[in-house]
Structures are given as C-alpha cells and as structure tokens.
C-alpha cells in the first residue's frame, strides 16, 4: 500500500513538471498532502497516539488545507499572474524530472544497507531534486516557495523512513515545514507584495557584486 501511494506521489512530481498554471501547482501540493497523510498513517501506526495525531494533523490540516488556501490567497491578493513562467519548456522539464527519478532509482540500487527501505529514499530524493529543479527554472518568487514545499514533502517522506524508531525526527520535519512555509509565505504576504509590484525574480537581483 505504501509503495502504491509513494508511486502516485512520484507521478505527481511528473505532473508538476508540466503544469502551467499556479493553481495546478497548488492542487498538486494539496494532493501530495493527502498522499503523505496516507503514508504517515500506515507507516507510523505503532508510535504513540499523541505523536501520531500530531503528524496526521499536520499532513491533513497544514499540508492539504491551510497551505494551499494560503497560497491561493496570496496569489489573489498580490494579483500574481496565473502562469508559472518557466525558463525552460515544459517538455524539457518533464524529461529532466524523469531523469532525476531514474537516476535516483539507479543510485539507490547501489545501496547495500538493508535497514532502510529503498523506496522512501528514491521517492524523497526525487522530490527534493525536483523541488530544487523547480526553484531553479521558474521565474516567479512564488514558485520558489512552491518548489520549496515540494522539497519539504520529500524530506517528510525521508523522515518517515526512520519514523517508527525516531519519531522525534518526524516532529522536527513538521517543525521545519511549518516554520519555513509560514515564514516564507509570511514575508511574502506582508512585504514582498507590498513593496514590489511585479513579483518577478528579476526584481530581487539588485543586491549583487
């Protein structure tokens, strides 16, 4: 079951690569939240109930509901155009993300350690690198945040791999999640939208040497 969910997660990454509209990104994020909820639920069923509740709450409330709504709000409030404005054509993005997945898959084959199930490793690493790729190739600042959230999801999956033995790490992951998203989005909603009218990356390239 976990494997199925994780594979669906990976497919969502592929979909992410060809998404044009920001709204699609947000929907995919929400969808990923739901998948993570499922994975966490199955994987962490043995840990203590309070902790489990926290994890599940985070995935379902924060990742699937709060953040997507918040993003939507920001886009509306700052009148950001709907297009994701990639530097590269979507086709290439698709190829790159596919490549990322293939490479991580091949890479994980070389791991000899058996204590960790490899699927977590593959999926999370693909998610992390896809997130980084999205950050690097999209023009808007808001897409950076979106990319970052994808990375977060990847990290969350990775933390689930040791979740039963070290639930603390999962909690930390959640903390990171909340902290970073709230903070980044907070700055966004408060300041960047006010100060910079057109929220393009080029606006933030003044500080350089």
């Amino acid at each position: 079951m976990i494997n199925v969910l994780l594979i669906i997660f990976t497919i969502s990454l592929l979909y992410l690569s060809i998404a044009d509209r920001l709204l699609t990104y947000i929907k995919i994020l929400a969808f990923q939240g739901i998948i993570l909820f499922g994975v966490a639920f199955i994987e962490l069923i043995q840990i203590n109930p309070v902790n489990l509740a926290l994890v599940l709450l985070e995935t379902i409330v924060f990742k699937t509901i709060f953040v997507p709504l918040f993003l939507n709000y920001i886009i509306k409030r700052n009148k950001i155009t709907r297009d994701s404005e990639p530097f590269l054509p979507n086709f290439i993005s698709l190829i790159v993300i596919t490549l990322i997945i293939i490479i991580t898959f091949l890479l994980s084959n070389s791991i000899v350690d058996s204590s960790i199930s490899k699927i977590y490793f593959i999926v999370s690493l693909s998610a992390i690198f896809s997130g980084l790729y999205i950050i690097a190739t999209r023009k808007k600042i808001i897409t950076h945040v979106l990319g970052y959230l994808v990375i977060e999801n990847g990290v969350f999956i990775l933390s689930l791999a040791v979740g039963t033995e070290m639930p603390l790490l999962v909690d930390l992951g959640i903390l990171l999640d909340i902290f970073a998203s709230v903070f980044l989005l907070g700055i966004f909603v408060n300041k960047i939208g006010d100060v910079l009218k057109d929220v393009d990356v080029d606006q933030l390239k003044k500080l350089k040497d």
């Binding site: 970052y148 990290v155 790490l169 990171l176 700055i187 933030l204 500080l207």
Partner: peptide
C-alpha cells in the same frame, strides 16, 4: 536581503535536516 537570507537559509536548513536523517 531578508528574502534571500531566509530563502537560502531555509534551503540550507533543509539540507541539514536531510543530513540528520
């Protein structure tokens, strides 16, 4: 400056977290 600092630090802190994992 703030945005860049926060963003880059967020990514780097994620790296650290991955490392911890």
């Amino acid at each position: 400056g703030t945005w860049k600092y926060v963003f880059v630090c967020a990514i780097s802190i994620t790296f650290v977290f991955i490392g911890i994992l």
